[in-house]
Design a protein around this nucleic acid. Structure first.
Length: 571
RNA sequence: CGGGAUGUGGCGCAGUUUGGCUAGCGCGCUUGCCUUGGGAGCAAGAGGCCGGGGGUUCAAAUCCCUCCAUCCCGACCA
């Protein structure tokens, strides 16, 4: 490709709207342009990258027996009503009507369509397992699209759905996808980590997220530093062993009230009373659709709202406002406690139950209770793990102190079980003529998000550094002086030779000064740059520059194609 | 959805407080000269219903009302 003919509108300055580095660089390097909030046009370079990622995904899906199909973006409301998700999905679902007033939506995911397809076309155990996938645009009307391609409203996703006879079959399909995903992200040249995750509203038991490790990631991950243990989980899901606060050996003392004027934070109370935060029981009131709930965690802990939501089995969970707190506890915010609290469900974290002679709010202004003993002074309705794990907590398997990192979720694999096959009636006849629901799994990869994640992880102050496997071109050939015919002809020869040998090469034939072309080459992130200047013409040696390291090397003219091909093959 | 901010040529911005006559600057773009190994220089150009609508006024980018868009923080979602 001749750069003079290529639509790569590079920008010298960072567009004001871009905050994260992948968004800035993809705009500046001429890969993407915004059409609306969270909706982008992919220019030629971006589209080449996307096609490469898609191709890697295709090969790995096919390797595991996946069959590619293409399902519609526009889906009839009836399907979603049948699964029950038309009402549940909420405002995230892009809804529209046709000219007859019939309801449709733009697919945010395709469980309904694919399950109904399989319901109609598959009826025998002989046809299972079946792995169907597509690479398709997806639509989610995010409340707040942000970070460029990392959280858009329209995005490209690979989604595969597995249909098995039973749980054992599902386990196998799940394992295949786990391997396939590991291969996909490895081949894309990304540093990533599969982590245990929460299954959220989709439900199901097992689920893993594949996280590309990057500071800008929205997800927080904890992991065990012991490689042989290998535990890693999204903090939403992460567990840790129950820890004693050091009060266990004490003998319970009689409950006592203390005057604590103006002390309503954990720091204030611990400072005032001269006790460890671990001795406090923090009482947080939450509003849910099932009423107000009190969540108890130790003073040094935070509530994990995802865990709490799961324990309570509620759809809505938010901290109660001050007025509600006062109504329930009879005191201003800061003095809530479990003792004598009426009309709310009490959920206590496991660690709270181990405390002896704890400190809590007294449900009265400026008053706390000391020597509170769980079981004696209050009895929670539920005891569960609702605490947020943090770095330093012991690994639940081996006890080593956990570490923290941030990640971008580029893939997630789910065991769905019979959730959709039951409601949508996707059944098959087994070898005994018995009708059974198919056992399903679903597996997604955010393709456009993966492109952005690759940039987040691979860049420097000059621009993008594409992993070779997904780079838009492998190499750019740059004649230094566009008016020097000898340079230009040599560059042209090299360009053609590389083209003829199957190398993805761009020739920067623009009548620009060398500096401009070098800057653009760095910004765009071609893995290799071949510079053709005076030296090349005179000595017949070409300068090859490696984007990843910034190193250069002189390569004899006749060896250039071999050198480039070797580099690509080894990458 | 709550809070905050911003909309002026392709990009980055000034001008708005205190209304005023041809709306500016840098980059980019076009043409010419010159230059040619890290975003050169000189000269001449093209390009803007100042986000939309309504109002106030002799006069609105500037003041008022309203709508829209975009970005950030939070909440939310997977």
């Amino acid at each position: 490709m001749r750069v003079s003919q290529l639509l790569v509108p590079t920008l010298r300055e960072v567009p004001a709207e871009a905050e994260v580095i992948s968004h800035q660089l993809l705009l500046r390097a001429g890969f993407i342009r915004k059409a609306a909030a969270g909706v982008y046009t992919f220019l030629p370079l971006a589209w080449r990258v996307i096609k490469k990622i898609e191709q890697i995904i295709r090969e790995e899906m096919d390797r595991q027996g996946g069959q590619e199909i293409l399902m519609p973006i526009i889906q009839p409301a009836e399907l979603w009503q049948e699964s029950g998700r038309w009402d549940v999905y909420g405002p995230e679902l892009f809804r529209l009507k046709d000219r007859h007033g019939r309801d449709f939506c733009l697919g945010p995911t395709h469980e309904e369509i694919v399950t109904v397809l399989v319901r109609q076309e598959v009826s025998s155990y002989r046809q299972l397992p079946l792995l169907l996938y597509q690479i398709q645009n997806k639509y989610r009307d995010e409340r707040r699209p942000r970070f460029g391609l990392l959280r858009g409203r329209e995005f490209i996703m690979k989604d595969l759905y597995s249909f098995d006879r039973d749980e054992a079959g599902l386990d196998q399909s799940y394992q295949k996808m786990y391997e396939a995903y590991t291969r996909v992200f490895t081949r894309c040249g990304l540093k990533f980590r599969p982590v245990e995750a929460d299954s959220g509203a989709i439900g199901g038991n097992d689920t893993h997220e594949f996280m590309v490790l990057a500071e800008s990631g929205e997800a927080l991950v904890v992991f065990c530093p012991d490689e042989s243990c290998g535990y890693a989980a999204n903090v939403e899901r992460a567990a840790t062993t129950v820890q004693d606060a050091g009060t266990r050996e004490e003998l319970p003392r009689p409950l006592e009230e203390v005057h604590t004027p103006g002390m309503h934070t954990v720091e204030q109370v611990t400072g005032f009373l001269g006790v460890d935060a671990r001795r406090l029981i923090k009482t947080l009131l939450y509003q849910t659709e099932k009423g107000v709930v009190a969540a108890l965690v130790r003073g040094d802990r935070e509530v994990n709202e995802v865990k709490l939501q799961k324990v309570l089995d509620v759809l809505r969970l938010e901290l109660a406002d001050g007025a509600t707190v006062e109504r329930i506890t009879g005191a201003v915010v800061g003095y809530a406690g479990p003792v004598g609290l009426q009309d709310v469900r009490l959920v206590a974290d496991e660690e709270v139950m181990l405390l002896v002679n704890a400190v809590t709010g007294a449900n009265r202004d400026d008053t706390h209770l000391i020597n509170v003993n769980p079981g004696r002074d209050f009895v929670p309705h539920v005891v569960a793990d609702i605490r947020q794990v943090r770095a330093g907590d012991p690994c639940p398997y081996c006890g080593a102190p956990l570490e923290e990192t941030r990640g971008i979720e580029v893939g997630q694999i789910f065991k769905l079980g019979d959730k959709y096959s039951r409601v949508l009636g996707a059944t098959y006849l087994d070898e005994h003529g018995q009708s059974r629901p198919m056992i399903m799994g679903c597996y997604g990869i955010g393709v456009t998000r993966t492109m952005a994640a690759a940039v987040e992880q691979n860049h420097d102050e000059n621009g993008i550094i594409w992993p070779v496997s997904i780079a838009p071109f492998h190499v750019v050939v740059v004649p230094v002086n566009h008016k020097d015919e000898r340079q230009f002809n040599l560059a042209e020869q090299v360009y053609r030779e590389l083209l003829d040998n199957g190398v993805e090469v761009a020739l920067d034939d623009r009548p620009e000064r060398a500096g401009v072309k070098f800057k653009d080459a760095d910004l765009i992130g071609y893995p290799l740059r071949i510079t053709v200047g005076n030296q090349a013409v005179q000595t017949n040696e070409l300068e090859v520059r490696y984007r990843a390291t910034g190193e250069t090397r002189m390569v004899p003219r006749e060896r250039i194609t071999g050198h480039v091909r070797e580099y690509i093959a080894l990458a």
